[in-house]
Design a protein around this nucleic acid. Structure first.
Lengths: 229, 229
DNA sequence: CACGATGTTCGACAATGCCGAACGCTCGGG
DNA sequence: CCCGAGCGTTCGGCATTGTCGAACATCGTG
């Protein structure tokens, strides 16, 4: 791969540093080891294009509204997400649990779709959020089929051979998640779909209720077939 | 305002052009009137930082997954959205309609929160999407209080004086929306909250059902008070 | 009230990223 | 089957462009 443009790369680094918090020029200078003047020039440009906003009171910088729109535009083009929408709703209806679809991105699970549990309010939308890969069913499925991950251990081998994964209270107490892989036409795993819900609903006598596993695997296979068309 | 960094500004322009579609280097060259070589350098950098992905089959470029995460990170820092979450759920419960919160951005309504109508599946999430300003209740409220918009006409004057707006089938047939302004501690309108639903539910004899107007205005006042704390 | 922190401006220097032509490659029509 | 038009990509010379560090104004604080 060839050379890369310095200022653009620095601008991207700044945006990543600003993800989820407000930082000042001086704080950014310490984090990036760049002169304040240089940073200010990049920040001024980012403000000008709407990617960054400056707090009028404190002078600190935060991400801008344009990024929200660009991020949601990513979803519009995402093939996997477009094909999954209908099947995810169906899975939510059958299982009566919240449904999640994710992809592996920078070692974490990036949530690209999220259907709330039916008849249950007060849930916050997690699309665009990262979930840990090792303690969620989605993550286990994705790691087990990740070509760059070598020898993920016994658990991931099991996940790969039997075709689904479970997390039993590993991320949150009393919460269980199940997931299965989604493959593109060439057989490569490009994502995972799963459900998440209370321990007492998704398990029986400490074992995963296989009915829910079937629901999830059927949805995953349906999307996989859909992608092949 | 001082000078701005050329390459960063160009990179931002490319990202905006890529919003919602796939484009090739040649297409971008025509749209931006830049040499292909220059564009390629910027694109290579954007791919490197994950803001853009290249379709392996066609060679075309599309937005990358990193942007989805950055966009959702914007919401984490957004004060208005954080304070609105609870009140939006309450409004959805009372009105039994879908709830929307938006801000004016680049002349359009940027949706920063969206609660589905209770007991109704098959709705797609609109956070991050733009709505037209002139044909939605949210947009009318925001335009009516926009300091940069001068003399918005009789309808916007009415909206400003009575404190709420309605759209009667202006965006979609059979659909009605209502909205009221949210103000920051200094009195400036920073957003709007509203509901959207079927004509037959939100109106009586062709007139807006004032009970729903009350729900919406109460929610807006509650958030305004919340922001003052 | 002075100090240290902040965000901001500025100008000189040269490194940086721009440009345009040329390169392989893949299609599709003749 | 070949040719040409389109594509994405590479490359090196030139000068434009962005970098840098010191100096500035401003704020809050001990």
């Amino acid at each position: 791969m060839g050379e890369t443009i310095q200022s653009v790369e620095r601008a991207a680094a700044i945006l990543r540093l600003l993800a989820g918090r407000r930082l000042g020029v001086a704080e950014l200078a310490r984090a990036t080891a760049l002169p304040k003047g240089t940073l200010h020039g990049i920040l001024r440009t980012l403000v000008h294009v709407g990617f960054v906003e400056q707090d009028a009171a404190t002078g600190k910088y935060r991400l801008g509204a344009t990024l929200l729109h660009l991020g949601s535009s990513y979803l519009d083009v995402n093939e996997l997400r477009a094909r999954s929408l209908n099947w995810a709703d169906g899975l939510a209806g059958r299982s009566r649990e919240s449904v999640w679809i994710g992809t592996l991105h920078e070692g974490q699970v990036l949530v690209i779709h999220h259907v709330f549990r039916p008849d249950d309010s007060m849930q916050i939308l997690q699309v665009g959020a990262y979930l840990p890969a090792r303690t969620t069913a989605l993550g286990k499925v994705l790691l087990a089929h990740d070509p760059y991950e070598e020898s993920g251990g016994d658990e991931l081998d099991l996940v790969r051979s039997r075709g689904w994964a479970a997390d039993l209270e590993e991320l949150e107490e009393g919460e269980v998640s199940l997931a299965a892989p989604i493959k593109d036409p060439s057989g490569v795993v490009v994502g995972a779909i799963g459900i998440r819900g209370a321990l007492e609903r998704l398990t029986r006598d400490g074992e995963v209720d296989m009915r829910y596993v079937s629901y999830v695997r059927e949805a995953a296979r349906a999307i996989t077939r859909d992608l092949a068309r």
